[in-house]
């Protein structure tokens, strides 16, 4: 009886699973990428390369770098998840029978 209340009811929908998996995995990957990137490059050194008048502090540089990586990773895994999930099913007809 208690079982009913418990089992099978706590599952996230497929969409929600995909969205949160993408957000979380890209977050972790971006964190790693940011760490490696900024260990090698100082945001202050980089701030002048696009526009000489542009001066970004380190704090802002780190944040911008992190969100850029996060966006990039989310784009990558998001599109991958989308393609995998919307791909035509193999032997779809066979399975229905």
């Amino acid at each position: 009886m208690v079982n009913e209340e418990y089992r099978g009811t706590q599952q996230w929908s497929r969409d929600k699973q995909a969205v949160f998996a993408v957000v979380w995995i890209s977050f972790l990957t971006a964190a790693m990428g940011t760490m490696v990137f900024f260990a090698l490059f100082d945001p202050v050194d980089l701030s002048g390369i696009f526009d000489e008048d542009l001066e970004i502090g380190r704090d802002a540089g780190y944040a911008a770098g992190f969100f850029f990586f996060w966006f990039l990773c989310a784009l990558c895994s998001g599109v991958t998840a989308f393609l995998v999930r919307t791909a035509p099913k193999r032997n779809a007809k066979k399975r229905q029978r």
Partner: peptide, 10 residues
């Protein structure tokens, strides 16, 4: 539409 019920609270 979905095989899964919505996420009820645990």
């Amino acid at each position: 539409a979905s095989m899964y019920a919505s996420a009820d609270k645990i």
